[in-house]
Amino acid sequence: MALPMIREILAQVFKIPATNPFPARFLPPSVTEFLKKVGAGEATINPPVATPPRFRGKIVYDRDGCIGCNLCIRVCPAHAIEFIPETKRVRIYVTQCIFCSQCNDICPKGVLTMSPEFLLGTEDRFAESQIVE
């Protein structure tokens, strides 16, 4: 009976685990309280894993440079961009965005860019953080 794994696991016990640690070592009684403490510098969290270069996270929109040409709307696969005729500017719904960054490619003025921000979860899809305009 050959069990090559036994050797492997016995060696592994003495090595450092490969898992990325959770932000807090144990689940705090209240996550918001804990985050407040972290903000105040009273507690520390394990930082998240760094994003790679040229990561495509939450979209950034430079409103002033926009000329309202509508090209981004033509290539957005998710219909996440809406044109506001009154202001001749666009509004981007982050909850619908699929982070393909195609609008960045087509934008003639280069006013759309992707930021490395990725912690976007929320229960309200029309929250302020979920709409870029």
Partner: peptide, 13 residues
């Protein structure tokens, strides 16, 4: 816990 360490995980408290 030990099993987790053998699998290169941190494991539960």
């Amino acid at each position: 816990r030990i099993s987790a360490r053998m699998q290169a995980r941190i494991g539960p408290p």
